[in-house]
Amino acid sequence: MESMNDGIGVDIAFLLLATLAVATGWRVFRTDSMVRASFFLLVSFIAVGVIMILLAAEYLGVAMFFMMAVEMTVMALFMVMFMMNPAGLNPMNMVHQERIAIGAGIAGFLILGAMALLAVFPDQPVPADLEPVRSLGNEMLGDSMLIFESAGLVLLTTMIGVVVLSSHRGRYGAAAEGSMPPGLEPGGDPAGKPEEDEAGEGEHHHHHHHH
């Protein structure tokens, strides 16, 4: 395609976007704030979306912007709702098996990178007269309609599953079960309940804290 390899401008843009995508992708796991982490991930996705547009896949690139903007906003909301330290006020590095993880990440990059450099892929660029959006639309509502519709059905199934998983237990359990906060430890008192009679039970509390 002409527009793809057209001059040094596209190459410079790609280099900057690639650096941005990798750098922000890395920062996701290196920032103290979980909200910031989700916005770093959003920037990484947007950089990849712009690269898709540079590759003439306009529809996919723009779809990426919209989808990821919504997804990452939801993610940031979840961070505020559930996670500790969403604002990054304290240093945070919550990792386990980090050496294995680093090794697996580097191994994955090296194997895939070696394939990218050493494998021989057919050189069949997009024809210059192809309209990518039109051809994608014809495919989705033509030959591949069953696949496309199946994706819709799976998304519906997901919605039902999500509602089942995240709703309060009612019919198949105590109605009030879901509305009482669970204890901080299994079987403990409900969390967030105000302490009763601190002075009178001081000794008892002291004992309790040791467990």
Binding site: A101, G105, M115, A116
Partner: peptide, 13 residues
Amino acid sequence: AALIGIGIYGALS
């Protein structure tokens, strides 16, 4: 490959 590698690190760690 770089994005996938970082992702593997994150998902495991």
